[in-house]
């Protein structure tokens, strides 16, 4: 697939996000639901960037969201009196990206030498170890966490702070989702993607062929981590204006990311959107219709979907459009 058609698959992705965004803006009182769905899509999209291309399961992925959240929280709580106005948010995002990148480089240097279940467990160790380091050494206020709603109000004014928490934070989440999708496609269509594809099929063979596997792995790993940092900074820090270590370093969110990616189809571009929407909407409706029982219903449904359709929704779709003119839009 060469030439102008190379980046066509981004069209349906952008269309899907645009439609979701428009629905949120147009339908009264549905914005937070849309924001939650966008969060799931972005989570899946950012997670999929590394996991989908390499087949490595980073179980401690949530640690990057956690440090990103802290990046924003620390920035706002310490610079709120600086008269920076909206610039503080920009600095916060920068800090989030820097924090998560640094952590990713440290983790990557250690864990990326491992494979399969060893890699997954090592990354769990990183997440838990980092959380206990924060609590044990009292870094960033330790277990007391940071509550910075007041600081945000000081920095931006009451009205603006409220709009940031209830509206702009969610727009940023959309931004992260789109950025993740664009980067995924860009990588897929360039050297990184080809190298990682070879790696996913057979890592040793790829190495023998002279592909610098480690370098491309680290590129994808860091990109995915930085996106997670931005997602934490917008979807958790700016939106909720507080952070407690056990709330953000919670393995459950990695599991959610895996569910989303697998429901949609691992390694596909559209998969995380499809997965995020299915996951978010079903969770939301079960919480409303059967409060207290939703997990009892949801868990067997997940098993059923995974056992019966292991290739995910987009995997099925790919099979359906194979050989038709729509083929070049779906990956």
């Amino acid at each position: 697939m060469r030439g102008s058609g190379k980046y066509l698959p981004i069209v349906p992705v952008l269309a899907a996000y645009a439609l979701l965004l428009l629905y949120g803006l147009a339908a009264p009182g549905k914005w937070q639901l849309v924001a939650q769905l966008a969060f799931y899509c972005a989570l899946g999209q950012a997670f999929n960037l590394f996991m989908g291309m390499t087949g490595y399961v980073d179980f401690g992925y949530v640690a990057f969201l956690g440090v990103g959240t802290y990046g924003m929280a620390v920035t706002i709580s310490s610079l709120s009196d600086g008269g920076l106005g909206l610039g503080i948010i920009l600095i916060g995002f920068l800090a989030a990206a820097v924090f998560s990148t640094i952590l990713a480089m440290a983790v990557g240097a250690v864990a990326l030498r491992l494979r399969g279940a060893y890699f997954a467990i090592a990354t769990i160790g990183v997440n838990e170890g980092f959380r206990y380091l924060i609590e044990g050494a009292r870094i960033w206020n330790g277990a007391d966490g940071i509550i910075f709603s007041r600081h945000l109000k000081t920095a931006l004014g009451r009205k603006m702070a409220m709009t940031v928490s209830t509206f702009w934070a969610d727009i940023f989440v959309f931004g992260v989702a789109v950025l993740a999708a664009v980067l995924t496609l860009y990588y897929l269509r360039n050297k990184v993607g080809y190298a990682l594809l070879a790696l996913r099929e057979d890592e040793d063979a790829a190495k023998v062929m002279g592909i610098d596997v480690t370098r491309y792995k680290i590129i994808a790993f860091i990109t995915s981590a930085a996106l997670a940092g931005l997602l934490g900074a917008s979807g958790w820090a700016l939106k909720l204006t507080y952070v407690y270590p056990p709330d953000v370093f919670e393995i459950h969110y990695t599991v959610e990311a895996i569910i989303i990616v697998l429901l949609g189809g691992a390694g596909t571009l559209m998969g995380p959107i499809a997965g995020g929407l299915i996951y978010g909407v079903s969770k939301y409706f079960l919480a409303i219709t059967l409060p207290g029982f939703q997990l009892l219903i949801f868990a067997p449904i997940i098993i059923a979907i995974i056992v019966i359709f292991p290739e995910g929704l987009v995997g099925i779709l790919k099979g359906k459009v194979h050989g038709t003119s729509l083929e070049k839009f779906v990956i």
Partner: peptide
């Protein structure tokens, strides 16, 4: 009228808004 937020922070916002607006 109550819903279940599963003790999860991101469900609180959407359910709360639903209660208020819908």
């Amino acid at each position: 009228k109550y819903y279940d937020c599963e003790s999860k922070k991101e469900s609180v916002t959407s359910l709360l808004e639903r209660l208020i607006t819908s």
